[in-house]
Amino acid sequence: MKPVRFDYERPVEIGAALALMQDEGRVVKIIAGGQSLGPMLNMRLVQPELLVDITAIPALKRIEDTGSDLIVGACVTHADFEDRRVPDVTAGALAGVARGIAYRAVRNRGTVGGSLTHADPSADWISILSAVGARVILRSASGVREVAVEDYMLGALAADLNPGELLEAVRIPKCSASARWGYFKSCRKTGEFAHAIGAVLVDPDRGVFRAVMGATETRPILVIDRAALFGASGFSTGAAEEVAQAAGMGDLLDRRTHAVALRRAFEQADAA
């Protein structure tokens, strides 16, 4: 089980990577940590002619504090979040979720940008970064644009990335001291892709309420209206199921599992 033969380039500047992506004569794939793409390459489900390794580009590993946001480069790894080499601006939410992604050996190489761009609906970053209101910064030869994380995934394994465009960084808004978060994922085995994810960020001082039902096999379902989920007697599993149904989740068991995952995420946020 080996990949097809491919050419390999490792630029040290974003500009050089973008230039390589312009090569229309070859099937070009970007690789970062390779923890999702690697298996697909080994199985020959992906057969590139040129692999562009972006992990030697220092600009993609940088962390910048803008005052209101933290900008985290695309090649920063899950373990970088877990070990708090990335400063915590989300009351511990990102570090807490990162430590549950796959396995430590995978977290040491897998990157936040790679995970978002691979766009597996069951992956963790898409759900928790949607919950914290993060945005992705996309760079191409013609400039930069930003997209909310929940809009970046167009569907299973499809990211909103134009030809010649590269995810450069993730913009994470800083939470206030009042922020609470919860995250629950339903897995049969530790480290496997989740069947349902509930992710919640409540930050009263900033007026933020964001609840996400993730691992839907397509885009995450984001709810920012508290009234859509809470009734007089608190969180309503039935209301969450209705939201899931309205978003196109056809299967009753799926809806219930997602509603319960979200309820447990809220319970965790309340207990914090």
Binding site: A32, G33, G34, D53, T55, A56, P58, L60, K61, R62, I63, G73, C75, V76, T77, A79, D80, D83, R85, V86, N108, R109, G110, T111
Partner: peptide, 10 residues
Amino acid sequence: RTALGPVGSG
């Protein structure tokens, strides 16, 4: 570890 990014890179 203090470096950021995939282990082995850079």
